[in-house]
Design a protein around this nucleic acid. Structure first.
Lengths: 341, 341
DNA sequence: GTGAAAGCGCTAACAT
DNA sequence: ATGTTAGCGCTTTCAC
């Protein structure tokens, strides 16, 4: 049986309250007494009971990450590994615990929501990868439950962190345009996600800025997975693009495989640009030109934002925060240079 | 303020206990009363307070995953994504929550250990990726804290789930031997991890079974990362192996890149075999012969093992469980066939 | 500066 | 089948 405050109190010859004060680093304890208590605490390895403490303070020091998607699909994509890594770092540093909730079935989601949000065992959550108009967001808003979204959201009341996906995409596509490309295809992300929408919007804006017509045959929707990169590239080949902009590095990787199998070389025959959130793309094709987005940092920032809110005295009345991180163009070798001459 | 049991009791006109019985699905409640209570519970969205419940039951329905490694290194390797995915699936299915603890600094580890293990907020943990003789294991054993290890452990008291790394490696190396290869190199995993040791052991056993001498120049130690695959392959090339066995798919991927840049083709000049825990290797080289290990399943099994223990009536006296999963040889195309003639 | 007492919301005897 | 009671281990007034 673990020790209780009472045990320590008896062992030290003081009262429960005093031990509590010491353990919580509160003032109004004689130096000498504090030292004595601390000694016993250390020797016995006493640790306050989390449940008892939470019951009275109404705080658990636990935040959750909620990802409403099919479990397998999510965790295997490098994006979440990176994101989780960043979130974890912040939580560790700030002495918070992190729980992972993957809402697989929409059925289980409802069940989970209650257990997670209503039972009071989470102080706040970080939601990621919500589709546009995900019912989760309004629900959290209704419940006035503290949360931060990874990915922008329409609703004015939502705190979020996001990349400048429009800007990043525009940047990399304009790079292609500057190289002289005019038949630029794109493999988009899911058009149910804001990042998918934004990356396509950036593509469009770049073309429009250069007065290049946007044609349907050159736009294929993928779902961020490598498989979709493969199949999308396959559908694109007949249209003979001179360049392809893939909206995720996994899809770029898939597209690359397809192009190679089709006997096309990159970037000589087809220039390929994309993202390199993670090492995959560059592992497959070191010559790929990409936009870099520091996902890990975004995770850390999201967690910081959440914890700041939870621990601000004004508790939620602090106004809405929106943080948009820029991407960084990384040009490698002479991607598509040939075409520009 | 959230509702309490008492509130529901008043609203329904029964006592707290009865509501408690209904909420916990206990018997001894009249059907009619149960229905009435349930109705109010649903309408109000009442959810029992987790802290209060834990305080009395001494159970939190939370288990943790502890990974004692540098945060970044860990989460970016696909192994953990897969593992976490499996663990999550089990936890979701069995209504447990999952917390993630990455013990980054050995300093923070100590601190974390107490908060996590002694505060009673976790019922049990899954440890992964411990180095051989990690102090964490004896400590958990001492504290009689319920845990399951992912990866075998010497200590007879440890419950674990692991792959048959020796067998799998032996299998894939013997495949090379059957093809006629005699100068087979290996890029090993970290020799501080049991998987690293075992995969090298399997390599050795295969060679010995074929009476092929094990030579030092053909053995290079990597650390499972792609970068180490690159540098290791570089060091191996002067020894002119006809085949390389990489002890992880990330390293196989790195080795492949190096070989290609050195103007060597795979598998014609050098046969390359490895693992395909994750899609990376096959994405890079579809013709790679590999051993497949179902990591996700291993995670699910580890979690099941832990939860079974936590919920068994005998509570820990149930004997030690060790589960070893076989790998599966996946031969693709005619890897290295040329040599066999 | 310290102790006594109340009570957080729940479950688990024990009555009835 | 249902209500009453006594805590679980802690924080937090409030006396002193």
């Amino acid at each position: 049986m673990p020790l209780t405050l009472e045990d320590i109190a008896k062992l030290t010859g003081v009262s429960r309250s005093t031990v509590s004060r010491v353990v919580n680093n509160e003032p109004n304890v004689r130096k000498e007494v504090r030292a004595r208590v601390l000694k016993v605490v250390r020797e016995t390895g006493y640790e306050p009971d989390a449940a008892a403490r939470s019951l009275v303070t109404r705080r658990t020091k636990i935040v959750g990450v909620i990802i409403p998607e099919s479990v397998t699909a999510v965790l295997t994509t490098p994006f979440f590994s990176q994101l989780l890594s960043g979130i974890t770092q912040t939580c560790n540093a700030r002495h918070y615990h992190l729980t992972l909730s993957l809402l697989s079935s929409p059925r289980g989601a409802d069940d989970m929501y209650r257990r997670v949000v209503r039972s009071g065992y989470l102080e706040g959550i970080i939601v990621s990868s919500t589709v546009v108009d995900d019912p989760l967001i309004p629900r959290l808003l209704d419940d006035r439950f503290p949360f931060v979204s990874v990915g922008r959201h329409q609703d004015k009341r939502v705190n979020y962190v996001d990349f400048d996906n429009v800007g990043a995409s525009q940047m990399v596509v304009e790079h292609l345009l500057q190289l002289g490309h005019r038949r630029i295809a794109t493999i988009t992300g899911p058009q149910t996600l804001s990042s998918g929408l934004d990356r396509l919007a950036g593509y469009r804006q770049a073309l429009e800025a250069y007065h290049v017509p946007v044609v349907r045959e050159l736009i294929v929707e993928g779902d961020y997975t490598e498989e979709s990169g493969i199949s999308s590239a396959l559908r694109l080949i007949p249209s003979e693009p001179t360049a392809i902009f893939a909206a995720s590095d996994s899809m770029a990787s898939g597209a690359l495989k397809t192009l190679r199998e089709a006997g096309l070389s990159v970037p000589e025959d087809v220039a390929l640009v994309g993202f390199d959130d993670v090492p995959i793309a560059t592992a497959v094709a070191p010559q790929l030109t990409t936009v870099h987005q520091p996902i890990e940092r975004m995770g850390a920032i999201a967690a910081d934002l959440l914890l700041d809110r939870l621990n601000s005295p004004s508790q939620g009345m602090a106004g809405v925060n929106r943080i948009v991180l820029p991407g960084e163009l990384v040009v490698r070798e002479s991607c598509g240079a040939r075409v520009s001459e």
